Simulated assay, not measured.
Amino acid sequence: MLKWIDVVKFASVGNPVPDTRVEKTEAEWKTILSPEAFSITRLKGTERAHSSDMCSFFEPGIYACVCCGTLLFDGDEKFESGTGWPSFTQPVKENAIAYHKDSTFGMVRIEALCNTCDAHLGHVFPDGPKPSGLRYCMNAVALQKVESREKKLTLGGGCFWCTEAVFTLLKGVSKVESGYSGGKIDNPTYREICSGMTGHAEVIEITYNPDEITVEDLLRIHLSTHNPTTLNRQGADTGTQYRSIIFYRSEEEKVAAQNIIAEMQEVYDAPIVTEVKALEQFYKAEDYHQDYYSNNAEAGYCQAVIDPKLQKFKQLFKDKLKA
């Protein structure tokens, strides 16, 4: 997660390397952009406040650069800032945005540009909501909405190496990331959460297409592939960081979680202790935790713990597996 100190560092020392570059002449940009989009993105203009409906809509989707189509912001990071311009707390990737010091109009600000094509997008400020504290104040004309059916679901059920390995195999699931959620501090490290003092749970964030797999099926699989009746424990792993938990993003998800827990309770003799809680923030874990099983399949933990879990999972849900 980027913080203000990171933004200042990029603007002062140098920006991250973009995935690709798109460069055109001014004449070429004029042929593909509307006059307003050209004025704002290529000539660093600013649209009138409250001039776009984009400020008022918070439905799922991705926002891309109007010039080159690079994905810049996720609708999940959009919030009502009251400024009259669309506002986001984070870009989709650390290297999606470039930052330049802007000393125009007698003040010092940090300009946000598309790191792929140098399109002027707006400015970034340190007065956004926690935990990042950032407000990417963007010109709506500089963005184009990319419709997406994908949704996200955040679950915890013991070691995230195990849960990630399970959900990666499901059809309809495009991405699974390991991380931390439900605790008291920002940007926790693995060492900190292992102490049990931060209150975070080891979780995975699943990106899925509800046309291919439903949230109800994901929840059934979750409650079938770990023991939801043991409090703060999964096998030999003990501590609050291993608790069984479902984080919901909407009232619809909350109701689905409660209904599936009630349904699955009939399968278990002991009471299900899975916590259902509103998601506040997902913190992505360190890189070495991502794709852990696929990168360490020969490791002792993977063979002793994850392999048997995967075999059982594949037998129970073979109709849900990717080809």
Rank of each mutant, 00 (worst) to 15 (best):
F247P: 11
K175N: 13
M197Q: 13
E177M: 14
D74E: 11
I185K: 10
I110E: 07
K9S: 15
T20F: 01
T225M: 09
Y293A: 04
R220D: 12
V173F: 02
S34W: 00
P35T: 04
G179S: 04
A140E: 04
I110D: 06
A96Q: 02
N139V: 03
V305C: 00
G172E: 13
F73L: 05
W4N: 14
I32A: 03
T163V: 14
K175Q: 09
S244G: 03
K93V: 10
A140S: 12
P210N: 10
E47C: 03
L218Y: 08
P86G: 04
F38D: 08
Q315W: 02
S56P: 00
L72F: 03
K3C: 12
F10P: 00
G183N: 12
K9R: 14
Q258N: 13
G158V: 09
A285W: 15
S148Y: 01
D307F: 00
D53K: 07
V203T: 08
I40K: 12
T31S: 13
E253G: 01
Y242C: 03
T163E: 10
S132C: 03
N15W: 11
L170S: 07
K171C: 05
Y208L: 00
W85E: 01
K171I: 02
L155A: 08
Y136F: 06
G235S: 08
E77C: 07
P131M: 06
S178R: 11
Q281E: 14
F73T: 04
V108I: 15
T274V: 08
T116P: 15
N115C: 01
D118A: 11
L321E: 04
H50M: 07
R42N: 02
H100Y: 05
E47N: 04
G239S: 10
E150S: 14
V146R: 11
G300S: 14
A256H: 12
F317S: 05
T207S: 15
P228G: 02
S174T: 13
T70R: 10
V92M: 08
D211V: 10
K171V: 06
C68M: 05
L316Q: 14
A278I: 11
S244Q: 06
T41W: 01
H120Y: 00
R243E: 07
P131A: 04
E59V: 09
K175A: 05
I272Y: 01
A323H: 14
F317N: 06
I32G: 08
G61P: 01
V146S: 02
H289E: 07
G45K: 09
F73N: 06
A11N: 05
T238L: 03
C114Y: 00
V8K: 15
A11Y: 13
T89D: 10
G14F: 14
S87V: 06
D74W: 01
I185Q: 05
E202C: 02
A285S: 09
S250I: 07
F282S: 01
E150N: 15
F282W: 06
G45I: 02
N296R: 02
Y180R: 09
P18C: 04
A304L: 10
N95D: 05
E205W: 08
E26A: 14
Q265G: 06
D269H: 11
G156C: 08
S87H: 11
F73R: 07
R48K: 11
E252R: 03
R233M: 12
K130F: 02
S52N: 04
E177W: 01
M54W: 07
K30S: 10
E94I: 13
T154H: 09
Y180Q: 06
M264D: 03
I62W: 11
V22H: 00
M138V: 03
A112R: 07
S87C: 09
D291V: 01
Q315S: 13
